[in-house]
Structure formats: structure tokens, C-alpha cells
């Protein structure tokens, strides 16, 4: 069940992308996502996709592995696409297909397709971020970026620690869920069959032990943290101090140039409907 999971997995490496300051990467990914949301035509998406693939290659992530992560999203995208197709009828759009009460407009087709591409690219960008940035760096970066907000009462340190612990337990719980599913499959529970509702109900016996165990884990973890002198965020220091370097400045320049290209493409080409 975890085989197709690419989001949230970190692939250790030593590429330039891996070595960037996490603040650069988080801010950069956010910038890219903003660009994606603004993008409105195929040419700009093509250019964006090319850039994304370049990033994947630069990070030495096996391309097939990155693309495989998209697979679980495809059914959702297909449903979304069909919905857009059926219901997007902005005034003035030309009908390109008509059958009974179903009318499909060119705008619907474009909006559905553009949106699907957007979601796929969005997913890829996030995946690249998590594949090249360890969860610890991610939270360090997020904590550093959020720290200015500590003055207005945002508990940045505690939030960051919550993130660290959450991410630390994702693989543990995934592994445990797999074990539970196996243990119960062995007892004759059939998880693969029945309709959606039945399948959801069949998950209860899996979730119950998982939850109960999770509470036990949480309890033990708190004890362990206390034993290691944790008393809240105040007064803590960090082993790693974040420092921006030349490659970070270079990354910012690359991003600026790319953003400029995208903006030009958005304005010059315009939306297709």
C-alpha cells in the first residue's frame, strides 16, 4: 500500500538541489506554486513542465519514480476533469459536442484540462521539495521562516516540533497499518472486495488498533521527551544553524528569471478560451 507513495519521502542525495538552504527551497516551492495558480495557458504550462523535469533531473530523482507518484491521483483528476467538462459553461463559450442534455463547451474542455495539469504539476513541485529536503530541514526551514511571527504569539518552535514528530511517525504508522491489514487479512477479512462503503467499514478493525496503539506511543513518547529534559520551546537551541550561501543566491536568480519567463508567457499567449 505504501509502494506508490512519493510525497513525504526523502531521497538522500548530494545534488545542488539537496544542498540548498531549506528556506530557499520552501520559499522557492511556494513561489512556484503561486506561479502555477496564475498560469492560464498550455504554452506556459509546457514551459513550467520543462522546468519541473529539469529540477527532477538536477536532483537525480529517477524520473519514473517521480511520475509514478502521480498515479494514485489519476482517478480523482479524471472525475474532476469530467465534472469541469459537464458543468463549465461560461457565457459565450462555444458548444463543441452535444448529446441529449449534455453540452460540452470548448471552455469546459480547456478549464478541465488546464486544471488537471495544474494539479499534477503542483503535486510534482511538492514532491520535489520533499524528496530533496529531509523532514528535519523542512521543519527547520519552516520554523525559521515562521519565527518572525513568534512575536505576535505564534508558537513557531512548538509547531515545528509537532511537524518533526508527525513526520517521524508517518513511516512507523504506515508500517504498522500494513502489519495490521496483513494480520487481519490472515484472519479472513477481505479488504479488496465490496463497494466503497463496505470497504470503508472494513477499515475499522485496522484503524482501531492503530489509534489505540498511537495513544500508547504518544504516552511513551512524552515520557521519553521529559526524560530528555524537554520543557517546551523556550530556551532550546539548535545543533544546525541555517546559513544561506552562494548557491542559494544563484537559485534565487534562476527563480527570478524563470518567473519572468512565465509571466511573459501568461500575458503574451493568454488563455485559450
Amino acid at each position: 500500500m505504501t509502494r506508490n507513495l512519493t510525497l513525504g519521502i526523502y531521497l538522500p542525495g548530494k545534488t545542488a538541489l539537496h544542498c540548498l538552504d531549506p528556506r530557499t527551497k520552501i520559499a522557492g516551492a511556494s513561489g512556484l506554486i503561486l506561479l502555477l495558480i496564475l498560469t492560464n495557458n498550455y504554452a506556459a504550462y509546457a514551459s513550467f513542465a520543462a522546468f519541473t523535469i529539469a529540477l527532477i533531473l538536477a536532483a537525480k530523482i529517477p524520473l519514473r519514480f517521480a511520475l509514478k507518484g502521480l498515479r494514485p491521483m489519476l482517478p480523482f483528476l479524471a472525475i474532476m476533469w469530467v465534472f469541469q467538462l459537464l458543468f463549465q459553461k461560461p457565457p459565450g463559450a462555444a458548444v463543441i459536442f452535444s448529446w441529449g442534455i449534455i453540452n460540452i463547451t470548448d471552455a469546459g474542455l480547456h478549464i478541465g484540462t488546464l486544471m488537471s495539469i495544474r494539479v499534477l504539476l503542483l503535486f510534482l513541485v511538492t514532491t520535489i521539495l520533499t524528496l530533496t529536503t529531509s523532514t528535519v530541514e523542512l521543519t527547520d526551514g519552516a520554523e525559521a521562516l515562521l519565527r518572525p511571527l513568534q512575536k505576535i504569539g505564534l508558537p513557531a518552535q512548538e509547531l515545528a516540533l509537532t511537524m518533526v514528530i508527525t513526520l517521524r511517525f508517518v513511516p512507523t504508522l504506515a508500517e504498522e497499518a500494513e502489519k495490521i491489514i496483513k494480520a487481519q487479512t490472515a484472519r479472513g477479512v477481505d479488504f479488496g472486495r465490496g463497494n466503497f462503503i463496505r470497504r470503508t467499514f472494513q477499515l475499522f478493525p485496522v484503524l482501531l488498533p492503530l489509534f489505540i496503539n498511537a495513544f500508547k506511543r504518544a504516552d511513551e513518547l512524552i515520557t521519553a521527551m521529559e526524560s530528555r529534559c524537554y520543557t517546551g520551546g523556550a530556551g532550546r537551541t539548535k545543533m544546525k544553524v541555517l546559513r544561506m550561501g552562494r548557491s542559494d543566491y544563484l537559485a534565487w536568480v534562476v527563480f527570478a528569471v524563470f518567473a519572468a519567463i512565465q509571466v511573459v508567457l501568461m500575458i503574451k499567449v493568454g488563455r485559450p478560451y
Binding site: V136, A224, R236, T237
Partner: peptide, 25 residues
């Protein structure tokens, strides 16, 4: 061990205690 390690990475986890003490990096 699964219920007492806090961070996903070995050295970061070992650093957790000393970080709590507020020692210099």
C-alpha cells in the same frame, strides 16, 4: 525504540536532549 525517538534522522534525534539544555550549536 520506536516510541522514544523524536526525529526522523539519527543525528538530529541524538541532538534533541542537548538542544533542550540550550547548549551552543
Amino acid at each position: 525504540p520506536d516510541n522514544q525517538l523524536i526525529s526522523s534522522i539519527v543525528e538530529e534525534d541524538v541532538a534533541f536532549g542537548p538542544e533542550n539544555l540550550g547548549l551552543p550549536p
